[in-house]
């Protein structure tokens, strides 16, 4: 909000004028698309989980890892063939939030910087987008685990 306060009256006036012409994000349409595509990706994931449980020696607890690996592999193929970014434009959060979206963020950066070589290009840029997710994901997991440990130590839970 401090940003707005710094604007001159002319800038604020212009912002109002510009807003009239600005195309708004179709939020409702985006939500519905995200719901269906995201749900569909999860259905595929569920099917793969069942596949590992019934065809291989996995249980409901252990099937998670191979399922995630398979989903990321599929996401990699779709990214490499140039399909995932189109799906992303259509589905928005629906294809960004599941683990396939995370895979896409890593893989697209790796493909993009291949031209700068394997070490400085792929290695240095692969986690350009996903790095923040990993950092803050691990850190918040640590904080939550710390709170849980303390609560158990104090006998609260």
């Amino acid at each position: 909000m401090s940003k707005k306060a710094n604007k001159t009256p002319e800038q604020q006036q212009y912002e109002q004028l510009e807003q009239k012409h600005e195309l708004k994000r179709p939020v409702m349409k985006n939500c519905i698309r995200a719901f269906w595509v995201g749900g569909l990706i999860c259905v595929v994931g569920q099917a793969i989980t069942y596949f590992y449980i019934y065809r291989f020696d996995f249980t409901e607890q252990t099937a998670g890892n191979p399922t995630v690996a398979t989903m990321i592999f599929l996401s990699m193929l779709l990214t490499g063939f140039g399909v995932y970014d189109r799906l992303g434009q259509f589905a928005g959060a629906g294809s960004a939030v599941p683990v396939t979206g995370f895979g896409n963020a890593v893989i697209s950066a790796a493909i993009e910087h291949r031209t700068e070589g394997f070490v400085l290009g792929v290695g240095g840029n692969m986690f350009k987008l996903a790095g923040a997710v990993i950092l803050f994901g691990v850190f918040s997991a640590f904080v939550v685990a710390l709170i849980k440990t303390l609560l158990i130590m104090w006998g609260v839970i």
Partner: peptide, 8 residues
């Protein structure tokens, strides 16, 4: 973003 990144 990278060209193949699926951001909307």
């Amino acid at each position: 973003y990278p060209t193949e990144y699926g951001g909307q």
